[in-house]
Nucleic acid binder design. Structure first.
Lengths: 204, 204, 204, 204
DNA sequence: AATGAATGAGACTTCATTCAT
DNA sequence: TATGAATGAAGTCTCATTCAT
């Protein structure tokens, strides 16, 4: 954003570079070997640092991966954060369909790293916890959107926004995993059915 | 059920008993330690058999667990198999709500073993594959139900039954995991919101 | 040789057949998997008998293999037993060259089983001992031949027949293994050089 | 020998010591238990290092043993490398007899470790391969010697030096194993007969 | 003569992490 | 800030063989 780094000492700049080298190397190694088979050994070799150096910047393998994972998930979160202030049911439909499409397209784009994320979730408690945290962030954001529609008389006011948001997110997340794991590339059928059922069920 | 076994030789009966002892011991050990920490060693000790004996009946820890998992999942599947031939939208609503409630109640009942299942899915490829297989069985069954409603003029005929069934199942499965993992006991809010959104979105 | 079996009871005939079935199955399994990887399990499955049955006829896996090995080695031993009563050095040369050629040709013919024999020698004490026994039988036979030549004034009388026979056998055995393991097919160079050196060194 | 190591950091020197401790411990353990029964566990206990440490320096038990084996075999190889430039047949005879004697004496000296080598050759593919490599090195060296004698008009020029060298080496190796395994101590009979036959057969 | 259910010893190896330098 | 030598826990699974039937 602003001119960061500019006020840093050379030493600090170097440190930042080392850190970034580890991150880059980590990404490459995780993509190539998956989470479990990736070793710190491979990562530091690729980053040309010593064993200890990796532990200066990251508590452990999981933390390094989580950093990488957050980068990717931020891209997903940008989609969730898209402004959502529809004036009508049909506008809501358009916006939601658009959002779902972007979300699933992103899954296709980030397929490889997401496969590793899926694996890591099952293997590392820390990664799993991080994932849960990310998920709640998504659900919270969706809950806000649902409430907006209810407050503006577009959506059924008796439904529990939090539960609906969760259900909706769950369906999206699961299709996302399916796309990632089964190498699915055509998503339009999913996009439209998902959106229709959701808006049909939620909106007036 | 019937008198099976009756035609088995004593030897075979004994073998069957040994196998069952291992299964029982396995369940106890998995419940107590979780999937990862459970060891074959603990299981055979509890079953009072030799190491090799376990490997006569099960290829490895994963296979033994999968057998156990299938037993539990069959109880879930019974719910999915409940006859579903509604005459009206409201009858459909009743039936679906009933099914969801049974499904989630079962999750509460089987909470402990399901926690282990969740853990095992992330840890064992074999268990994960089995889970995917079970999931597809559920989705296939739901797809049939959706089609029935469409063919009887109850549900929107333009929706893709397979995709809708999948989305619906996904939402249910995810709430099931949430209930299992967060020790949730009050499910009525989930049941009613889930059902309302689903029937509102799918049915005419 | 004579009409064996004819006087055997049916039961004894059956037993003999079972034994033979095990031997045949053993050969097939050893050839396919090598000594170490071959399992009793595979053998009895192929022979269509029970576990225990194999142990009625053979003390253990090694014994079954040794029986097979003896069959093959008898074919080699026939070469060693070829009558050897040369009248002159040149006749001796011819006979020895002929013998070496037959011996090494046999190695080519029996290559596959001999590979397994080599493996088994290193792995099983019993097989190794049997091999040593077979070797001594060969050397004893050769010693007789060397003595014959010495007694008939054809070979240097001061050489120690036993040591010479052993050295000669060793060279032959080693070339045999080389042919077996390196899939060598052209042996004439070996045959002639071996024979020339041997007769040159031993004969007058 | 010279002051190598001098330029190594303390860290590297320490590492070298650790490695040597493992090698020394390995030798002791292999001598005491043979190859098969020796365990990494015993070795690290004797070397007072951790499990992982052994695997830092050697891929596995086989590799550690191969290192040990190479040390011994180098002593044998020194004998094979003895300069061989005879001026006459009788000088050749003397030199060869001397070499054979040294070779077999060495076998007596190194009997215990060579017993383990023999065992290991049958048990470990890696050790077997290493042995084959060592053997070829010997044979190559002998081939050079045979050629020298042929080129200087001492040995029969029509014989194939490579085959003769191989045959000669084989006889020596086999007697070496016999001496090692049967605890033979009187070698003069072998030395003289072997040399006589060889020189008689090869030289003019 | 034939069967087959049961047995159990036990050695390997990996790799994230530490901490003295 | 960077290094890298050292650590060590821990759980799998095989398969020849036995012996009661």
């Amino acid at each position: 954003m602003k001119q960061k780094d500019s006020h840093l000492s050379n030493r600090q700049k170097q440190a930042l570079q080392t850190r970034q080298r580890l991150l880059d190397a980590g990404l490459a190694v995780f993509l190539e070997n998956g989470f479990q088979k990736a070793t710190i050994s491979q990562i530091i070799k690729k980053a040309k640092t010593g064993y200890g150096t990796a532990y200066v910047y990251f508590q452990n393998k999981d933390e390094l991966f989580i950093e990488l994972m957050e980068d990717v998930m931020n891209r997903f979160y940008e989609v969730a954060e898209l402004s959502f202030e529809p004036k009508s049911k049909s506008e809501a439909y358009e916006m939601i369909e658009h959002q779902v499409r972007l979300f699933l397209k992103l899954a296709i784009q980030e397929r490889e790293i997401m496969k590793v994320v899926k694996e890591a979730i099952g293997l590392s408690v820390a990664v799993n916890d991080k994932w849960l945290e990310i998920r709640e962030k998504f659900i919270k954001r969706i809950t806000v959107d649902v409430r907006y529609s209810q407050q503006n008389g577009l959506a059924k006011p008796t439904l529990n926004a939090a539960v609906i948001a969760r259900a909706w997110y769950y369906a999206n997340e699961m299709f996302m995993w399916e796309i990632v794991e089964k190498d699915i590339t055509s998503i339009e059928d999913i996009v439209s059915n998902l959106t229709k059922m959701y808006t049909g069920g939620l909106y007036l």
